[in-house]
């Protein structure tokens, strides 16, 4: 099928580039079809006046980071170390960080 070994390389690169193109096309297709789902979520957010995404449910400052207070990570005592795993993933919101 391949006359030369370099043909394998060129075909491989072409396939890789085509796969990247397909990936982009798939992303565009999903974005185009995501309207109703996004609208449904946005409507729920507006109706229930929600402020955060439900990404983590173990610690309250990770469940609702945008309305967390400055001390919520140290709620048990000022010397209490951060102990929720999600706290290592989530940064404090910018409005609580010193400028």
């Amino acid at each position: 099928m391949f006359g030369r070994k370099s043909d394998i390389f060129f075909v491989g690169v072409a396939l890789g580039a085509a796969a990247l193109g397909l990936m982009t096309a798939h992303a565009d297709y999903r974005i185009a079809g995501a309207g109703p789902s996004l609208m449904e979520k946005a409507a729920l957010v507006e109706r229930l006046e929600l402020t955060d995404l439900c990404l983590f449910t173990d610690a309250r400052y990770a469940r609702h980071p945008s309305v967390a207070d400055r001390h919520s990570a140290f709620q048990d005592s000022p010397m209490s170390a951060e102990h929720f795993p999600s706290g290592t993933v989530v940064l404090p919101p910018p409005h609580l960080c010193p400028q």
Partner: peptide
């Protein structure tokens, strides 16, 4: 579809 905002609600 709304799970990203409502899973634990």
């Amino acid at each position: 579809a709304s799970e990203l905002v409502s899973a634990d609600l």
